[in-house]
Simulated assay, not measured.
Amino acid sequence: MIVRPRMHWLRMLFVWRGSVAPRILPRLVFFLALSLLAVALGPLPFSLKEGSLALLGVALAIFLGFRNSTAYDRFWEARKLWGSLTIVSRSFMRQALTHPTPALSTEEKREVADLLRALAMTLNHQLRGTQVALESLPPGMRECVAAADHRPAKVILALSQWVAKLRHAGRLSEILVTSFDDNLDRLSEVQGGCERIASTPIPYVYSVMLHRTVYIYSLLLPFALAGSLGWSTPLVSVFVSYTFIALDTVTAELEDPFGREPNDLPLDALTRAIERAVLEMADEPLPPPLRPDDKFLLT
């Protein structure tokens, strides 16, 4: 995710890092050359009316806006799910530190903190399709997680077994066990919600249709404008193409919020925030928070 301080409106016009301009610049250069060619060729054997393309442009803008809203809804839901993971992890840790009788020992506090850390780490790597570094996991979870296909579910099972162990030892009442169980159910809902977003993209045919329409429109636009705008055509044509192509590109990033593109969620930073929260509650040493790099990118 791009994290930059608020800038003056004039400087914002020339922002390069964090925008999609570097990615689409070769395409814009192509449409600039096409616009110059359209003006240089003069009148064509066939004619394109500005009004017909203007009508198509309005319809295209509406459909792109709808697709962008759909993609941002996925992004925002994913962020809310990770916010819920943070809240429930803190809540579970608070219950674990205050409710058992007698209170947890230092080793037991570390155990439950490690389980919650492992859940965030394994969910992060599952959603990104990467392999979690086993040495980064708590020692007690490495063998258990290494052999599992659905690693976050395995960690939630270990948390449930931890609660059951306290109940069998008589350290938790049935009411408290129910309260812990509610939080475990919420953790499972977060995992399921994230997996649903990651495994169900926006219908492919819908994306292809809009993508084709954007580029066909951008190809035809210079030839429709050349007759009336003359040498102003490249400026107007490239600006309109930039608007549509940039929106199409941003939408493609947002529909997969768990990736590693510049505008995706910073799962590593969110995972580290959960680690720090539960370790601080357990009075354990804290790893440093993750900060944006020199390109303002927070992963």
Rank of each mutant, 00 (worst) to 15 (best):
C194L: 12
L166T: 04
P288A: 08
L32G: 11
R17N: 13
S91T: 14
L187G: 12
I87F: 13
E107V: 10
S237I: 13
W76K: 02
D114C: 15
G65H: 07
P257W: 04
F258N: 10
A148I: 01
S52R: 13
D149C: 08
A269E: 03
R4G: 04
R90F: 00
L159S: 10
W76F: 08
P138S: 14
T251E: 06
E135V: 15
A78K: 01
L172P: 02
R171L: 09
H150F: 11
T249H: 11
L97V: 02
T271D: 07
G42P: 05
F75E: 13
V163F: 10
N124M: 13
I87W: 11
D268Y: 03
W231Y: 10
A273Q: 05
G170P: 01
E253I: 11
L10V: 12
V240D: 14
I2K: 12
L265Y: 11
T243E: 04
R276D: 10
L64M: 09
S89D: 04
A40C: 10
W82V: 05
I24K: 03
V238Q: 01
I216M: 10
M281C: 00
W231A: 14
A96T: 00
P22A: 05
T271W: 06
D268Q: 14
V177A: 06
R74I: 01
V112K: 05
E107A: 15
K165V: 12
E108V: 00
P152V: 03
P138T: 14
A147E: 15
V190K: 03
P222S: 02
P287Q: 03
S52K: 12
I216S: 12
P45E: 06
C194W: 03
P26V: 00
